[in-house]
Design a binder for these strands. Structure first.
Length: 772
DNA sequence: TCGTTCCGGGG
DNA sequence: GTGTACGGAACGA
C-alpha cells in the first residue's frame, strides 16, 4: 500500500483484525479486533476528532470556541472547509444557532442546509474515513465468529402472533432449538431471554439470518417490547438501536405517521447481516435465481440437504402442534442453510468492508453506487486534501439508454452468443469517460485499479486449492470488485442529485459508445455471413451458416473482437444447437448437451399453471430438435389429459399471493369478485393473512376452487384447454407459418379439410424489420 | 385500457 | 439521515 490510488481503494492504516466499530459524537471509538492467529477478541478505545465539511464559514465562531479548527481544502470543489471539533454535537448546535441568527429563521438540523452545503457522516464513518482504517485486515471470512438464529412464529403479525421456537446455530456449528412450550406471555418472555443468553455466551461478531432485518429483528423487538423483556443483543449495554434504511422493517407508528419510514436495527459491537441482501445482490448480476426465498435459493445453489423438510409458512404452527419433530427439523435446516448461504454469497460484502470506510453491515445492504463508491471518493478527496464538489441538481438532460435489437424470430440453428464483459466500465476506461467534476480523476483511477486487481484476484482464486479459505477470499474479492466496477456507470447515471459526482453527459457518452460498439459488432458479424438474431446492450446472438464448426464460429468472433478498442473485450460466450426467438429478451436455447434454457416472462412466469409450463418445456425441446410431430403429440396428450381430468388439480392451479384482508375483500366483493378470495370463501375459510400464498383454479361449475390436500379434479377443462392454446401454444407461434401453426395446434374435435400434413411441417425463422 | 404503485421476503 | 434494481402484477381511474 504505497501509492495514492491504493490508498484510495483500501485506506492506509494497516490496523489488523477490526470486526466491529462503534463511534460516538464525542470523539470516542470502540473497536473490537480479532487476532487472526489466536482467534482472541480484544476491545479497545480509540479517539478521533469529529469533523464535517462546509461550503462556508458564516456560521462558525472559532474566536469564541478555540477548540474548533478549520482547514481549507484545495481545488474548485465547494465543500472546501474541513471543520473539526472535539464534540460533534456541540459543534452542530453552535452552527445551527449561528445560522438561525444569520438567516432569521430556525435551522433545526444540518440537513436543513441541504447536502450541497454540508457533509456530515455518522461517527463510525467519520472515524474510518479519517483514520484510513477498514474492517477485516488480515482476516478471512472463517475468522469471523458468526451466529445464526431463526424465529418460528404463529403468524406474521407481531402485534398478535407469538414466537414459539427459535433455532440457534452457534459459531462452532452446533444447532440448538429453544422452545416456548406453551403460548403465554411468560413462556415467550422466557424464550426471548434464553436467546439473549445464547448470544451473550457465544459472543458472535456477526448475527445472520435470511430476512433478518425484514422479519426476525422487528418481530423480536416488538415482542420483547410488548413483554417488557430487555433485548441487549449487542456488545455494549442497552437494547437495539435503529438506522434508516431503504429495505427493512416498516415502522408501525400510527395511521397518520409518515408513510414508509423503514429502519434496520443495530446491535453495537456486532454486525447484523441479512442473507437476503446477499441473495439480491448476487441475483442482480447472475439473474438466474428462481426466487429470493431461503429454501429456493438453498436448493438452487446446492446448499440444501436431501432430507430438507418443507412446510408452507402458514402451516408451521399447526404442524408443530401435531408433529413438532418436523418443525424442529425445518427450523434447524433454516439456520444451517443461512450459514451456508452467508458464506457462499456473503464474501463480497466482507471484501467490500476491507475497502470502503463503512461498517460491514452497511456495506452488506448498501447499493454499490451511493453505498460504496461515494464513501471511497469522499475518503480519496479528503486524503488528497481536495475540496469535494457538492451535489448538483440535474440540468434537465434526459438519460439515454442501451440498444436492443430483434433481428429475427422463430427457430434458428448453430446459435452463438458473443458479448463484451463489463461493457460500460470498459468504455469508461477506453475512452476516459468520468465525471466532469472529478478533478482528481479518482473515479477512473478506482475503476482502473479495481479491474486490474480483480484480474489478479481471479487468477489467485484459480490457483488456490478448491474450497480453501484463500480461494474463498479471492473469489469474494473478485465478486466485490466486479460489483463496484459495474456500478460505476450507475453512479454516473444516477438521476437527480443522488450521487455527488453524477454526470448525465458522461453517462450518455458511455451509452452512446455502447450502442456504437454493439452496432459495429452486429455489422461486422453480419458481414461475415452469419444471421443476426438478437442484440441487447453488450451482447449478440447469431446463427452461423450451415457447415461452420465451432472453430469457424470462434474465428468470426475473434475477428470482430480485433476491431474493437483495446480494453473492450468481445468474448465467445457460448454456443447452442438451436434457439427459439420469440420476442426481445424472450427466447429458448437448446444446448448441444441437450439442456433447455428458457429466458423471459413469456416462458417463465410465477403464476403460470404447471400443466402449461410442462407442456411448453416439452414442446419447445421437441421443436428445437426438429420434431414437429412430437410437438403435436405433446399438445394432443395435454388436451386429452385436461379433458379426461387425468391431470391433478394442482397442475391447473395458479399460485397467487393474497393482498387483501378478509375485511377489505368483503368491502369490494360487491363490485368485483376475485377468484382467489371466492375460492377461500367457497372453501369455508373466513380468516387469512395478507401475504399468504394459495393455489386457485376455475371449477367446472364456473366457480373458484382452492387446492388443499385433496384432489377434486372438478376443474373447468374447456377453460384450461383455451389457456393451453392461447397462452402456452401461442408462445410457439413465431416458429411456424400461420397455416402450419393452425395445423400443429388444430383441435381434433374440429377437423379441418385443408390442413397441411404435420409430418411435412418445418419450423421457420423470419427476419424482422430491425436493421442496423 | 392505460398509467401508476407496489412488491420481492419472513411465519 | 436512506438511495434511484427491475420487471411483473396489482391497483386505480
Amino acid at each position: 500500500m504505497n501509492c495514492r490510488e491504493d490508498e484510495w481503494l483500501w485506506g492506509w492504516d494497516p490496523t489488523p483484525g477490526i470486526v466491529s466499530v462503534w463511534a460516538s459524537a464525542d470523539g470516542h471509538a470502540l473497536l473490537w479486533r480479532r487476532d487472526h492467529a489466536t482467534g482472541k477478541l480484544s476491545r479497545e478505545l480509540d479517539t478521533f476528532v469529529p469533523w464535517m465539511l462546509l461550503d462556508r464559514l458564516d456560521d462558525l465562531r472559532p474566536e469564541s470556541d478555540p477548540a474548533i479548527t478549520v482547514r481549507e481544502l484545495s481545488g474548485p470543489g465547494s465543500l472546501r472547509y474541513l471543520v473539526s471539533a472535539p464534540d460533534l454535537r456541540a459543534l452542530t448546535t453552535s452552527i445551527l444557532q449561528n445560522a438561525s441568527k444569520r438567516l432569521g429563521r430556525r435551522v433545526a438540523t444540518l440537513q436543513d442546509f441541504g447536502k450541497q452545503s454540508v457533509l456530515s457522516l455518522p461517527p463510525d464513518e467519520q472515524y474510518l474515513t479519517a483514520t484510513g482504517r477498514a474492517y477485516f485486515r488480515g482476516l478471512s471470512f472463517d475468522h469471523l465468529r458468526r451466529m445464526q438464529f431463526d424465529l418460528e412464529t404463529t403468524g406474521l403479525d407481531a402485534a398478535r402472533d407469538r414466537i414459539f421456537l427459535i433455532a440457534v446455530r452457534d459459531p462452532a456449528g452446533a444447532v440448538e432449538l429453544l422452545e416456548a412450550g406453551e403460548l403465554s406471555d411468560e413462556a415467550e418472555a422466557r424464550l426471548i431471554r434464553r436467546l439473549v443468553d445464547r448470544v451473550s455466551a457465544a459472543d458472535p461478531d456477526v448475527i445472520e439470518n435470511h430476512n433478518l432485518h425484514g422479519f426476525d429483528l422487528p418481530f423480536l423487538e416488538r415482542r420483547a417490547r410488548l413483554l417488557r423483556v430487555p433485548l441487549p443483543l449487542g456488545r455494549i449495554g442497552g437494547g437495539l438501536r435503529q438506522r434508516a434504511a431503504q429495505r427493512g422493517a416498516q415502522l408501525e407508528g400510527g395511521a397518520a405517521a409518515p408513510p414508509r419510514r423503514r429502519v434496520r436495527y443495530i446491535a453495537p459491537g456486532r454486525e447484523l447481516i441479512d442473507t437476503l441482501d446477499a441473495v439480491i445482490r448476487h441475483d442482480f448480476s447472475t439473474r438466474e435465481l428462481p426466487g429470493h426465498g431461503l429454501k429456493e435459493v438453498a436448493r438452487h445453489l446446492g446448499i440444501a440437504g436431501p432430507d430438507r423438510v418443507t412446510i408452507p409458512g402458514d402451516r408451521i404452527y399447526q404442524v408443530y402442534l401435531s408433529d413438532p419433530g418436523r418443525v424442529r427439523s425445518y427450523a434447524a435446516s433454516d439456520v444451517e442453510e443461512v450459514a451456508g448461504l452467508a458464506k457462499l454469497l456473503g464474501g463480497a460484502a466482507f471484501a467490500l468492508a476491507s475497502m470502503a470506510p463503512r461498517r460491514y453491515e452497511r456495506l452488506a445492504d448498501a447499493g454499490a453506487a451511493t453505498g460504496v463508491i461515494d464513501p471511497l471518493l469522499v475518503r480519496a478527496y479528503l486524503r488528497a486534501g481536495a475540496a469535494l464538489p457538492a451535489h448538483q441538481p440535474s440540468d434537465g438532460t434526459p438519460h439515454s439508454g442501451a440498444a436492443l435489437h430483434l433481428f429475427a424470430t422463430g427457430v434458428a440453428h448453430r446459435v452463438v452468443k458473443a458479448d463484451v464483459a463489463s461493457l460500460y466500465p470498459s468504455l469508461m476506461r477506453a475512452y476516459r469517460i468520468g465525471p466532469a467534476r472529478d478533478h482528481l480523476g479518482a473515479m477512473l483511477a478506482l475503476v482502473d485499479r479495481l479491474v486490474e486487481q480483480r484480474l489478479a484476484a481471479k487468477s489467485a482464486a484459480r490457483s488456490a486449492p478448491p474450497h480453501s479459505p484463500e480461494r474463498h477470499r479471492q473469489e469474494a474479492m473478485s465478486a466485490a470488485m466486479k460489483l463496484v466496477v459495474n456500478s460505476a456507470y450507475g453512479y454516473l447515471a444516477a438521476g437527480g442529485d443522488l450521487t455527488r459526482f453524477a454526470d448525465v453527459h458522461a453517462a450518455n457518452e458511455v451509452t452512446r459508445r455502447g450502442r456504437e460498439t454493439l452496432a459495429l459488432m452486429c455489422r461486422e458479424l453480419a458481414g461475415r455471413g452469419v444471421t443476426l438474431l438478437e442484440a441487447d446492450t453488450d451482447g449478440v446472438y447469431f446463427s452461423a451458416p450451415e457447415g461452420w464448426d465451432e472453430s469457424a464460429e470462434r474465428r468470426a468472433v475473434a475477428e470482430v473482437a480485433a476491431l474493437l478498442p483495446e480494453l473492450v473485450r468481445l468474448e465467445f460466450e457460448g454456443r447452442y444447437a438451436a434457439m427459439l426467438s420469440h420476442e426481445p429478451k424472450n427466447y429458448a436455447l437448446l444446448g448441444y448437451d441437450g439442456v433447455l434454457t428458457l429466458r423471459g416472462v413469456a416462458f417463465r412466469s410465477s403464476r403460470a399453471e404447471p400443466f402449461g409450463e410442462k407442456f411448453l418445456r416439452r414442446a419447445i425441446a421437441l421443436l428445437l430438435r426438429g420434431e414437429v410431430e412430437g410437438v403435436r403429440e405433446a399438445y394432443l396428450e395435454t388436451l386429452d389429459a385436461l379433458r379426461g381430468h387425468q391431470l391433478p388439480t394442482r397442475d391447473v392451479a395458479s399460485r397467487v399471493r393474497l393482498t387483501k384482508s378478509p375485511a377489505k375483500y368483503l368491502e369490494s366483493q360487491g363490485t368485483r369478485k376475485e377468484l382467489p378470495y371466492e375460492a377461500l370463501i367457497g372453501a369455508g375459510r373466513t380468516q387469512w393473512s395478507v401475504g399468504d400464498r394459495i393455489l386457485v383454479y376455475r371449477t367446472r361449475s364456473g366457480g373458484a376452487g382452492l387446492v388443499e390436500d385433496d384432489d377434486r379434479r372438478d376443474y373447468d377443462a374447456d377453460h384450461y384447454v383455451r389457456v393451453l392454446r392461447e397462452t402456452f401454444a401461442a408462445r410457439l407461434e413465431r416458429a411456424f407459418t400461420a397455416e402450419d401453426f393452425e395445423a400443429v395446434f388444430a383441435d381434433p374435435d374440429q377437423p379441418s379439410l385443408f390442413a397441411p400434413a404435420v409430418e411435412s411441417i418445418r419450423a421457420v425463422l423470419t427476419r424482422e424489420p430491425d436493421t442496423i
